[in-house]
Every structure is written in C-alpha cells, then in structure tokens.
Computed example of a mutant assay.
Amino acid sequence: MPDSWLRKLRQAVRCGKIEYQQHALERLLERGIALEEVEAVLLQGEMIEFYPEEAMNEPR
C-alpha cells in the first residue's frame, strides 16, 4: 500500500472523518465489536495484503 494512502486513512480516522455504512454498524453490533476497536486497528494495524484495484474505487 502506498504510504500516502495509509497516512490519509489514518489522518481521517484521527479527525473523525470516517463514515460507517449502516450495514457495517449492524454487523459490528452483532459481533460485539466497538467502533473504538475498529479505529484502533485502522490507526495501528499492520497491512497483510493489498488489492490496489479495490483501493482506487470511489466510496459509495
């Protein structure tokens, strides 16, 4: 993953500019996963695989 893309993602998380789809929020609730846990992973997690063609798609 290009470093600039990861920096932008992490900056958006820090600034509270991440929007969650209703479907994602429902699944998180079902699975007992807090938004703080998701954001911690986005800020500190390690990328193990990257699919550039998917990263280039515009958000829905």
Rank of each mutant, 00 (worst) to 15 (best):
Y20H: 01
K8C: 10
I18R: 06
A12P: 00
E39K: 02
F50G: 11
R60S: 07
P2V: 00
Q11P: 10
M47P: 08
L42P: 00
E53D: 15
E26G: 00
K8Q: 08
E19N: 03
R14S: 15
P2R: 09
L25S: 05
E30S: 07
E36V: 15
K8W: 07
E37T: 12
C15S: 15
C15D: 15
G45D: 09
G45Q: 03
G16R: 05
V13F: 08
I33F: 14
A34E: 15
I18T: 14
G16C: 05
I18Q: 12
D3A: 10
K8P: 08
R7E: 14
W5G: 01
C15K: 05
R14I: 00
R27N: 13
C15R: 09
H23V: 11
L6R: 02
E30V: 07
V41L: 15
I33Q: 07
A40W: 09
Q44I: 00
R27S: 13
H23G: 04
E49C: 11
E36C: 09
M1A: 15
E39V: 02
H23D: 12
P59L: 05
E26A: 08
G45K: 10
E36T: 15
I18G: 12
E53L: 12
A12K: 04
M1N: 12
D3S: 10
E46K: 06
Q44H: 14
Q44S: 07
A40K: 01
A24M: 04
E46N: 01
